[in-house]
């Protein structure tokens, strides 16, 4: 089972690295939509981490957490999109 462990650790390392890269974009993103995109990518990668953790521990309960995380991330993204486009539409005093 050494190869399985090796692949598992490399998978966790790649996921962590991609979350770190998205977090760098979240920190230095020049505009607000950049940060929203980075946040959504981070939550999607979090769903992936939860899937890998489910494979490791064998607890199927964590998949519920992944489902709730997907739901909350979608709602947050939609709310932030409305927040981004609101100043442009109320600028002319509608």
């Amino acid at each position: 089972m050494s190869l399985h462990e090796l692949i598992f650790y490399s998978v966790v390392a790649v996921l962590t690295l991609s979350i770190l890269l998205a977090f760098i974009r979240l920190m230095k993103g020049p505009s607000l939509p950049d940060r929203v995109v980075a946040l959504e990518a981070i939550s999607t990668m979090g769903i992936g981490v939860i899937a890998v953790y489910t494979v490791t521990t064998g607890e199927g309960v964590f998949l519920d957490v992944a489902m709730i995380l997907a739901l909350v991330s979608f709602l947050g993204t939609v709310a932030l999109a409305y927040y981004i486009q609101k100043p442009a539409s109320s600028e002319e005093g509608d």
Binding site: H4, S10, S18, L21, G48, A51
Partner: peptide, 21 residues
């Protein structure tokens, strides 16, 4: 099969991380 699919999924996640940066 599960391990191979996990590796492929992690590859796509890594591509997403590189692309977003």
């Amino acid at each position: 099969i599960s391990t191979v699919l996990m590796g492929v999924g992690a590859l796509f996640m890594g591509l997403a991380g590189i692309g977003i940066l």
